[in-house]
């Protein structure tokens, strides 16, 4: 039985240690806001925070996560969708199909923690998540809005 710290709670997980964290979150812990898109750390739909760092959970095995490491998923980013990034996303109607958006939001939240006033280049570098609907321009605008760096 492995132990994980997810969204502030310590949880017991019964799964093979080679199971990707993504599937532990989705299937063992029922946190389906973290999405599967590729399984090879390309698309970023599975992005969570591990000790504050945006991490692609499909490429992290259960056995490699220490019990004391703090995992935050979209379900724990804010109690009620009130993280500045989530508010900006809602305000600017960013999502289309929405499937990639939780990963986008987690990546964006980590970016703002690192760089509270990101430049376009910072956003280009940090936001390598794939969106097939093509919400990129609004993702960028919403990050700037949340950071207060929107160009007028």
């Amino acid at each position: 039985m492995a132990k994980l710290t997810v969204n502030g709670a310590t949880l017991d997980v019964a799964a093979d240690e080679n199971t990707p964290l993504l599937w532990v979150l989705r299937e063992q812990l029922g946190m389906t806001g973290t999405k599967y898109g590729c399984g090879i750390a390309q698309c970023g739909a599975c992005t969570v925070h591990i000790d504050g760092v945006a991490t692609r959970s499909c490429a992290v095995t259960l056995g490699s996560v220490k019990p004391e490491q703090k995992i935050v998923t979209i379900e724990g980013l804010s109690p009620d969708g009130s993280h500045p990034i989530q508010k900006a996303w809602l305000e600017m109607d960013v999502p289309q199909c929405g499937y990639c958006q939780t990963g986008m939001i987690m990546a964006a939240a980590a970016l703002l923690k690192d760089k509270p006033k990101p430049t376009d280049a910072d956003i280009d570098e940090a936001m390598s998540n794939i969106c097939r609907c093509g919400t990129y321009l609004r993702v960028k605008a919403a990050i700037h809005a949340a950071a207060g760096t929107s160009k007028t």
């Binding site: 809602l90 999502p95 939780t102």
Partner: peptide
């Protein structure tokens, strides 16, 4: 007008087929 389906898409509550249990 704003979309009617945005709120759950920013919190992870939106249930897609792959999320059904």
């Amino acid at each position: 007008v704003p979309r009617l389906d945005t709120a759950d898409k920013v919190t992870g509550k939106q249930v897609y087929g792959i999320d059904l249990k």
